[in-house]
Structure formats: C-alpha cells, structure tokens
Design a protein around this nucleic acid. Structure first.
Lengths: 126, 126
DNA sequence: ACACTTCAAGTACAGTTGTACTGCAAACTT
DNA sequence: AAGTTTGCAGTACAACTGTACTTGAAGTGT
C-alpha cells in the first residue's frame, strides 16, 4: 500500500485538524485552524481539496456544505512522514532524532516517566 | 537568527552527506549519495547550489573544482526541521513523535539503555 | 421578491522542488 | 595536437505549494 503522495506542510496542519475534530466542513476546519494561525478560508478549502485528491481525505455533500473526513489514521501518516524525514536527514538512523527530542524540547517530568515505562516495556516485549 | 528558508527533502539528503564527509566537491557528494540511491550528478549539483543560495553551505573554487562546505551545524538544522514538523503535524506536542520513534522503529537494546540514561540525566540535571 | 450574506467551486499565479539536459572549458590519452 | 573524458555553469521545465481572488448559487432578513 501507501502510494499516496507525501503531505506538504500546509496539508499536514489541515489533516491534523481533521483528526482532531472529526468530519467537518470547510468552515469548521477554518475556524479551528484560525485559533492557531492566520489563514484564509479559501486556503483551507484548497488544502482540503488537495487532501482528498491525494487520498488522505474523503468528502460528501451535505446539503449546501461539503463534509470532509480523514481517510488515513494519524499513526500511518506519522509513520510515513517521520520515516521519510529520518531517512533523508539522518540516513535512517533514529537515535539522533530521539536524542534531540528528549534533550532539546522541554519534556515534562511525567513525560519522562512515561518514556521510562515505555522503554521498559520495549525491552522485554518482543 | 534563522531566516533561512527551510530545506527541501532532496536538499536535506545532500546536506547530510556534506556533514558526513566534510567539505567536498560535487563528484564526491554524488558518489556518496549514489551508494544509497540513484541520483543524477547534475541533480546533486543543483542541490548543492541551492544549499548555498539558502545559506546552508558555502563554496570556494579549488582549481577546476568547486568545494562545498556546510555552514550550518546538523544540530541547528535538526532543531529547525523537527520543530516545524512537530508544530504542523502534532500541534506542538512532542510526545506522539517520541512514542512513535521508540515503539515503531526498531531500536536496539543499547539504544534503549542509552535512552534510559538520557532520561535520568534530564530528570535531575535541569 | 429584492438586497444582502454565505459558502463551495473554480481559477490564478508566483515560488519551490525534483530532476535533468546542454554547452563549454580543463585535463587526460594516445 | 586531436579526441575523449570530466565536471562546472547555465538553463529547462513540469509538478507541487502556499496563498488567495472571483464567480455564482443558495440561504436569510425585510
């Protein structure tokens, strides 16, 4: 599977909103995104259309409005996107990225705890 | 600082090679990259030129050849790139990405050990 | 019913990206 | 020295991106 063209940055944002709020019309997506950054209604519309063309979303008419839903799970998109990044930027080596995330991006104490558990679990399981 | 335009995927690969092998001519970069994927000599050349235009590399003539050097540390580029990705794809939340990396991308036992130490260190030393 | 407001659809358009061909000069071969 | 190879500079170009304007139909207030 997976012959979707990669998401562009703008498309990612819109996809994220779709995951967050579930199936929604352009207006709703636009409103949600507007809370975080300024973006034109029509721009959001374009991103949604492109998301659909690329296979990441589907839509149906609902009266006058068009309702978009995500067709791909966050997990999948994350995998595809991050794998590609790791490949390109680190030649496939995961650790530099993990190090950066833990060291340089303020994680909360609880996050660190969670990670420790996660690591334990990984070490035995499998 | 940091008003560099973001790197594209192809540019990233070339930047990585530059970090890896240090200052080098087009040929050398092309050879190194060719070990991993097929790519045209002239394409690499273009990427190097663009890297320079964007401020990520500099070059000097050395006789007939042109030698490119990275001008930005990996660390910096990683930060900029990953921060942007986290912003767009996770709305700024770091953990989903860390989770994905640890759970879904086969880390070696030693990597896990290293992480554990890293986490310990983070938790005490501010 | 008429003016006014909403919105989807289509169109636009410059900048970026991926990818590569062409032209020419320097260097190497015979 | 003429031919062949090497490698940079320049140019090309379609697809993709970011961003938004325009047009026209549907819905709303009076």
């Amino acid at each position: 599977m997976g012959e979707r063209p990669a998401l562009s940055k703008g498309e990612m944002e819109v996809a994220r909103v779709l995951w967050e709020i579930g199936p929604a019309g352009v207006r709703q997506v636009h409103e949600t995104l507007s809370e975080q950054r300024e973006i034109d209604f029509a721009t959001v519309q374009t991103y949604l259309r492109r998301l659909e063309r690329k296979g990441y979303a589907s839509s149906r008419r609902d009266g006058r409005a068009r309702i978009y839903s995500a067709r791909t799970k966050p997990r999948t998109v994350i995998r595809e996107t991050v794998d590609e990044l790791v490949e390109r930027l680190f030649g496939g080596d995961t650790m530099p990225l993990v190090r950066h995330l833990i060291e340089d991006r303020g994680l909360q104490a609880e996050d660190l705890d969670e990670l420790r558990e996660l690591i334990d679990r990984m070490e035995q399981g499998e």
